[in-house]
Simulated scan of single mutants.
Amino acid sequence: MTIKEKQQELVEEFAFLDDWEQKYEYIIDLGKELKPLEETKKTEENLIKGCQSKVWIDVEYREGKVFFYADSDGILPKGIIALLVGIYSGHTPKEIIDSDFEFIKEIGLQEFLSPTRANGLMEMTKQIKFYALAFQMK
């Protein structure tokens, strides 16, 4: 499945949810399904700066694809990073770089987050693009 297809699937899933309470519950459930990051990977180097909660993202590059692993000490940020990992993990650097984050606007996520959480979301997306750019050089 392409990144765009995954994004579209998520937009459609959110469209079925009636209100933001249900959408938040869905995001939190995504976080509960995220495999916890090993404690040894919860380092300062893997910490995303600018998030209200602690959010770590680890990355692996193999067979031409980027794989993301993440965790957070907050339930909502953990769900948000799980959502992003689910969409971008397992794709080539070029696919990640060429993708956009319009789906975030389409599901209305950013407008329902507090300013500090919206900033954290932006930092998460920047970090994903940064890793893709770094691996594209290989």
Score class of each variant (00 low, 15 high):
102 E>M: 12
70 A>L: 07
117 R>N: 10
128 I>H: 01
131 Y>P: 01
104 I>W: 08
107 I>W: 10
53 S>I: 05
97 I>H: 08
52 Q>T: 13
58 D>N: 12
128 I>T: 01
45 E>F: 12
86 G>F: 06
92 T>R: 04
36 P>I: 10
51 C>H: 12
128 I>M: 02
78 K>I: 02
117 R>E: 10
113 L>A: 07
85 V>E: 10
102 E>F: 11
43 T>S: 14
28 I>M: 13
93 P>Y: 08
92 T>V: 09
40 T>V: 13
47 L>N: 07
5 E>K: 13
95 E>M: 07
125 T>N: 07
86 G>Y: 06
45 E>H: 12
8 Q>E: 15
136 Q>M: 07
80 I>T: 03
98 D>Y: 11
12 E>T: 14
28 I>C: 05
45 E>W: 01
8 Q>N: 14
42 K>W: 01
35 K>W: 00
135 F>S: 05
123 E>D: 02
7 Q>M: 12
107 I>K: 03
66 V>N: 04
93 P>V: 12
84 L>S: 04
129 K>C: 02
16 F>W: 11
19 D>E: 13
70 A>K: 03
102 E>W: 03
31 G>N: 03
33 E>F: 01
114 S>R: 10
6 K>I: 05
126 K>P: 07
21 E>L: 13
104 I>H: 04
121 L>V: 12
132 A>V: 04
98 D>W: 08
79 G>A: 08
